[in-house]
Structures are given as C-alpha cells and as structure tokens.
C-alpha cells in the first residue's frame, strides 16, 4: 500500500509540474461539452435533460487521454524499466497509477460539473448522489483504464488501440453514472442508489482484476 502512495505521488507530481492535464485535457473536455452544445442546439429544454449523459461521455473521452498520458510518462527515458526494477509491488504500482488517474479525473469532473451547470443550465440537485457517482465511476474507469493502458503500452499502435479496448468495457460505467446523475438532477436522488451500487460493483471488480493482472503485465517487454 505504501508503494501505491509512492507511485500515485510520483504521477501526480509529474502532472502538477508538467501541467499537461491542465493545458490539454481540461481544454479538451471543455471543447467536447461546447461541441455537444453546438450539436444539440441552443435550446435548454434539450440540453438540460441530456446534461448527465453528455457530461459522462465527455468524462469517458477525457479518461482515454488521461490514461494514455499516465503511460506516456513511463515511456520516455526508460522509466518503465526503472519502475519494474524498483522492486515495488506490481499491485502497488497498479493501485498507485489508478489512484493518480482517479484524482486527476475527479478534478476534471468538478470543473466539468460547473461547465455543465453553466452551459446546459443543469440544476445541480442531489449533490451527495452526484458526488458518490463521480467517485465510484471514476475508480472503475481508472482501474479499467490502467489495466488496458498497460496492455496497450509499448505497442506501436497504442494510441488507436486503447480507445477501442477501453470504451466498450466502460459502457456499464457510462450507463450507471448517467442514470445516477439523471435521477439526482431530476430531484429524485434516491432513484440513483441502485445505479451507485452497480458502479461500486464494477469498481471493486476491476480494481481486483487489475491488482491480480498487473504483475504478469509488468514482468515482460
């Protein structure tokens, strides 16, 4: 577990100093929600009910970028080999990288929530369910993202392969998080509780798979 903190600290420090997330991922997400606005027209009657879904699609697309970034920092200067030789527990490395991605995504979600409220006129009710859905969904996305990021890392076609592998698997997260948000924004947050448990199951399952599978993924190449 200490290893996880170390790796997460390292990744977050790199992000904090390089500011790639701030300079590229956040503007990308902003562009996505602006484009949704253009695609669906200026009417708030259309945009406000759709805001939960649009928000989560934007998050999903951004999480592909964040995951790719998380492995790009390992690609240069033989950092991947250094990580493997460091003697850190593979499970710890997995948890650390997933944690760093989750923290970055949560920060992004906080900003996007604001954006959705302003641009789409979504009324943010049921804050507790909104927040819980963000946490559960983000942990699930980060776990799947890191496993698939490791699967695709080092391959010549990783940029195109990762989204293809990652997005279909994340479909239940999109569904669960969107429905939970929908219920909360409609003012019936208790309707979202079932979806929260689905998100939690997904998160627990993939964190477990990642913890087990990360060893074999790191030991080679």
């Amino acid at each position: 577990m200490r290893d996880a903190w170390l790796v997460a600290g390292k990744d977050l420090r790199i992000e904090f100093r390089s500011r790639v997330a701030v300079n590229q991922v956040i503007p990308f997400a902003a562009a996505v929600i602006l484009l949704f606005g253009l695609a669906l027209g200026p009417s708030r009657q259309v945009l406000a009910p759709a805001s939960a879904g649009l928000f989560w699609v934007a998050v999903l697309l951004s999480s592909v970028l964040v995951t790719q970034r998380s492995f790009a920092v390992e690609a240069s200067d033989g950092a991947r080999d250094a990580l493997r030789l460091s003697g850190l527990d593979p499970a710890g490395i997995f948890l650390g990288k997933a944690l760093a991605v989750a923290v970055e995504l949560l920060a992004l979600e906080a900003l996007l929530t604001f954006g959705v409220a302003v641009l789409y006129g979504a009324r943010l009710t049921g804050a507790l369910v909104l927040f819980a859905a963000c946490v559960a969904a983000t942990v699930g996305l980060a776990a799947v993202g890191i496993v698939y990021g490791a699967v695709a890392s080092g391959l010549r076609v990783r940029e195109t392969l990762l989204p293809l592998l990652f997005l279909p698997v994340a479909a239940p997260v999109l569904l669960g998080a969107t429905k939970a948000w929908d219920e909360a924004l409609k003012g019936t947050p208790s309707g979202g509780l079932g979806w929260l448990s689905l998100l939690a199951v997904f998160a627990v399952l993939y964190v477990a798979i990642g913890t087990v599978a990360f060893g074999p993924l790191l030991e080679e190449s």
Binding site: V151, L155, R156, L161, L164, L165
Partner: peptide
C-alpha cells in the same frame, strides 16, 4: 478490439 490487439506485431 481483442482481435485487433492480437494482430499487433511484437514479441
């Protein structure tokens, strides 16, 4: 996606 991954050249 799985088949695409299998087709990737490499070790």
């Amino acid at each position: 996606g799985y088949l695409a991954l299998r087709r990737v050249p490499g070790d």
